[in-house]
Simulated assay, not measured.
Amino acid sequence: MVFIGKWQITGFLNFQFDVTNGQRTTSDVALVGGGSYPQPGEISLAHNGVLFLDELPEFKRSVLEVMRQPLEDREVTISRARFTITYPSSFMLVASMNPSPSGFFNDPNSPMSSSPMEMQRYMGKISGPLLDRIDIHIEVTPVPFEKLSEERKGEASEVIRERVIKAREIQTERFKESEILHYNAQMNTKQIRLYCKLDQEALNLLKKAMERLSLSARAYDRILKVARTIADLSKQKDILPNHIAEAIQYRSLDREGWLG
């Protein structure tokens, strides 16, 4: 799985691995900052950049949970007896994980499989509130040999880059009156209601998805922001039903069937 948020790449986070218990040994202090004399943690060092977490379920749950507030507020506050300090932490979180403990989830050709209990335990390492704060969940399926060996080239990175730049220009124009708002991911609930208006067909589609997938209010806002960005990439002024449908598909971990 790959979870995605913003654009600029300026930094990555390195972790040690404890071979005795099979867990990442990074502490919550190392991640968010702190100590007797508070220092910024990795999420502040990744400000305006990228924080990449590999093998997400291998981190201690307590370490992952401390990211919830910085992901929401884009800053982290550390309080001590004599003072309080706030560090900026507006970063793009990119995380990856195997789809199951064996790594062969839903692969009919694999001799290894995971039971529903194993899957529950594995996925339980990542809390629902943390997943709610991640805009996009993408399932990356195995690439067959035919695809690996074919010579047909896909869309060039330069073309994709130009499309992204134009979408960012649209967002810059949209938020030109604001000093603190620059792109869609920064919108709060009030701004989402203003810039992400839906017609009745798109609204009905989103309503069905909310009811069927039991999505939270936070997931609802995330879908609207992603749909707004998809519309910008398509140079569409309004969010159309197909933009909502695509944004819903980018929440793989909210869909049924992930636990076998």
Results as ranks from 00 to 15, higher is better:
residue 116 P to D: 08
residue 159 V to Y: 07
residue 127 S to N: 04
residue 80 R to I: 00
residue 91 F to A: 04
residue 75 E to C: 04
residue 113 S to H: 14
residue 67 M to D: 08
residue 79 S to W: 01
residue 70 P to N: 06
residue 70 P to D: 11
residue 112 M to L: 13
residue 121 R to P: 08
residue 109 N to Q: 13
residue 76 V to D: 05
residue 56 L to M: 13
residue 67 M to G: 07
residue 84 T to V: 13
residue 153 K to H: 02
residue 77 T to A: 01
residue 120 Q to W: 03
residue 114 S to C: 15
residue 89 S to K: 07
residue 133 R to N: 12
residue 152 R to V: 10
residue 142 P to Y: 06
residue 111 P to H: 11
residue 153 K to L: 11
residue 134 I to W: 02
residue 127 S to W: 01
residue 136 I to N: 09
residue 111 P to Q: 03
residue 85 I to K: 12
residue 47 H to R: 05
residue 125 K to Q: 15
residue 104 F to M: 02
residue 47 H to C: 03
residue 159 V to K: 09
residue 47 H to G: 02
residue 117 M to V: 14
residue 97 M to H: 06
residue 89 S to Q: 11
residue 89 S to P: 13
residue 121 R to K: 15
residue 95 A to E: 11
residue 154 G to D: 01
residue 94 V to K: 05
residue 100 S to A: 15
residue 115 S to Y: 09
residue 81 A to T: 08
residue 108 P to G: 00
residue 116 P to F: 10
residue 53 L to V: 08
residue 158 E to V: 08
residue 130 L to Q: 03
residue 77 T to D: 03
residue 122 Y to F: 14
residue 137 H to A: 12
residue 61 R to N: 00
residue 60 K to Y: 11
residue 126 I to C: 06
residue 111 P to C: 03
residue 50 V to C: 14
residue 113 S to V: 15
residue 107 D to E: 06
residue 150 E to W: 00
residue 103 G to M: 04
residue 100 S to I: 05
residue 67 M to A: 08
